[in-house]
C-alpha cells in the first residue's frame, strides 16, 4: 500500500509538471496562442454552456470537431489533444452512461447471455450522446488550457475584475503546488526507506495523514517566508494590473466565430426540436 501512495504522489507530480506547468503547447505560436486570454476565456464559458445545452447527436458531433480543428491550427498534435481529453472521460462518465444502455427502455439491440440484461437502441443512443457531450465540453476546456499561459490566464482574471486577494492566492497556490508536491514526495521516500514490508489499509491512511500533517506544517512556515520574500521584492498588497493585453483582428474573428456557433446552436435546437 505504501508503494501505491508513492506512485500516486509521483504521478501527480509528473502530470502537473509535464501537462500543466511545462506550458509546452501554450508557448507555441499558433492561432489560439495569439488570441487575447479574455476573449478566449469568455468564448470558453459561452461554448461550454452551449455544448451542455445541446440535445442532438449530429450537432454535438459537429461541435466536437471544432476544437479538433482549432487544436490543429494552434500547432497542437491532435493525437495528444484527444488523449488528454479522453484521459478524464472513462471513469465517472462510464459509470453513468453504461448502465443507462440497459436501464432505458426501448427497442432491444442485444442481450447479455445468462443475465437477461437487454440493451435498448434508445439507451445506446443516449449513452453515446451523453458521453460525446461530456467529451465535447472537456475538449473546449482542455483546448483553452493547452493554448493559454498561466500568466495570461491571471491577466484575464484581473481584467475581469476578480478581487486582488483572490488573484494573489490563486497565483501563489499554482506556484507552490509543485514545491509542496516535491516536499511531500521526499518525506514519503524518507519514510518508505525506513519501512519493511507493506502497510495495511488503515495503516496506509494513517501514514497518509501524517505526511499531510507534516506538509501542512511546512506550508505554514513557507507561507510566512513567502510574504517576507514578496515584501523584499516590493510587494504592497496589490496585484499587478493586466498589461500588454490588446484586442486584435484574431480576437474579433474568434468572438464572431463564437457568436456564429451560438446562433447555430439556437437554430439547430429549434429545427431538431
Amino acid at each position: 500500500m505504501g508503494g501505491l501512495l508513492e506512485s500516486t504522489a509521483r504521478e501527480v507530480l509528473e502530470f502537473t509538471t509535464e501537462a500543466v506547468f511545462s506550458e509546452r503547447y501554450a508557448r507555441k505560436n499558433g492561432l489560439l496562442q495569439r488570441a487575447d486570454p479574455r476573449v478566449k476565456l469568455l468564448s470558453l464559458l459561452t461554448l461550454v454552456t452551449v455544448v451542455v445545452s445541446l440535445r442532438n447527436i449530429y450537432v454535438i458531433l459537429f461541435f466536437y470537431t471544432v476544437p479538433l480543428v482549432f487544436a490543429f491550427l494552434s500547432h497542437i498534435r491532435v493525437s495528444d489533444f484527444i488523449k488528454r481529453v479522453w484521459f478524464f472521460i472513462p471513469a465517472f462518465t462510464g459509470l453513468i452512461a453504461v448502465p443507462s444502455i440497459f436501464m432505458i427502455p426501448g427497442r432491444p439491440v442485444f442481450t447479455i447471455p445468462f443475465t437477461g440484461w437487454s440493451a435498448s437502441w434508445e439507451g445506446l443512443t443516449w449513452a453515446v450522446l451523453f458521453t460525446l457531450r461530456v467529451a465535447t465540453a472537456v475538449s473546449y476546456a482542455i483546448l483553452f488550457t493547452m493554448t493559454t499561459r498561466w500568466k495570461d490566464f491571471v491577466s484575464a482574471l484581473t481584467s475581469l475584475r476578480v478581487p486582488g486577494a483572490v488573484i494573489t492566492i490563486t497565483t501563489l497556490a499554482y506556484r507552490y503546488i509543485f514545491l509542496l508536491a516535491k516536499l511531500l514526495l521526499d518525506s514519503m521516500h524518507a519514510r518508505r526507506s525506513r519501512l519493511a514490508g507493506d502497510l495495511g489499509l488503515v495503516e496506509s491512511w494513517k501514514e497518509a495523514g501524517k505526511h499531510m500533517g507534516a506538509t501542512f506544517i511546512k506550508a505554514n512556515s513557507l507561507g510566512e517566508e513567502v510574504y517576507y520574500a514578496m515584501l523584499a521584492r516590493g510587494y504592497s498588497n496589490e496585484t499587478l494590473r493586466s498589461e500588454g493585453l490588446k484586442i486584435e483582428k484574431t480576437d474579433y474573428a474568434l468572438a464572431v466565430f463564437t457568436l456564429i456557433l451560438l446562433a447555430l446552436a439556437v437554430v439547430t435546437t429549434e429545427v431538431f426540436r
Binding site: 501512495l5 500516486t8 507552490y176 509542496l180 497518509a208 506550508a219 507561507g223 510566512e224
Partner: peptide, 22 residues
Amino acid sequence: QQVPLLGVLTAFAFLVMMYNLP
C-alpha cells in the same frame, strides 16, 4: 501577511485532493 499563507495552504488543499488513497 496571512494572504500569502492562504495561497500556500490552497496549494496544500490541492495536493490533498490529488492524493489517491487505497
